[in-house]
Amino acid sequence: MVTLTAQMSNTGSTWRLYVVLYGEPDWPTVRWERTGPVPTVAERRAALAALGYEVAPGAAWSWTEDSRDPNNDSTPVLLIAAVTVRPREAVTS
């Protein structure tokens, strides 16, 4: 089974969910033009399905904090979520 990583991040003005495809110039992406609330699990599942992916069995979203300037702890926090996904074609009946 081929698995990939999907990530979701917030730049401060929009949420963006994308599937990481190393070596590809354009990654499949969905945007939510809002700062809050955080896209729900159902919204993320629908966005992944629209991109042709689904969360891999047993996988769960994990969250991490980042910063635009890791040397300055007073800069806004950037939230990044990640989950293992697989192409929807990999689903067996």
Rank of each mutant, 00 (worst) to 15 (best):
L4Q: 05
T35E: 13
V20S: 10
T29P: 01
V55A: 06
A59M: 05
R16Y: 10
L17R: 02
A56P: 00
N72F: 06
G23R: 06
Q7C: 13
L78A: 10
V91Q: 14
L78N: 08
P25S: 07
A56W: 02
T84K: 07
V19G: 01
L21R: 12
S67K: 10
T11V: 12
W61Y: 06
W27A: 02
D73C: 14
P25K: 06
I80C: 07
E65R: 06
A56L: 08
P76K: 03
T3V: 11
A42D: 11
T64P: 04
E89L: 14
R45A: 07
E54G: 08
S9M: 11
V38D: 07
W27P: 00
N10D: 08
V41M: 12
D26A: 14
A59R: 03
W32C: 04
W61G: 01
W15D: 00
T11Y: 15
R44E: 01
L79E: 13
A6N: 03
G36T: 12
V41C: 14
V38P: 03
S93T: 14
R88H: 12
R34F: 04
D66H: 15
P70C: 00
A42H: 09
R31W: 12
P39K: 02
V83L: 04
Y22P: 07
M8D: 01
L51F: 04
R34V: 01
Q7V: 13
D73W: 11
Y53I: 00
P28D: 05
P25I: 06
T40N: 05
D69R: 09
V77E: 08
L48V: 01
R86E: 02
S74E: 12
S13L: 13
E33L: 12
V38E: 08
Y53D: 00
D73H: 13
A60I: 12
V20G: 07
D73E: 13
V85S: 03
N72D: 08
A60H: 14
P25A: 07
Q7T: 13
P25M: 07
V77H: 06
G52R: 08
P87A: 09
V19Y: 00
V83Q: 02
A81K: 01
R68L: 11
N71A: 15
G52L: 05
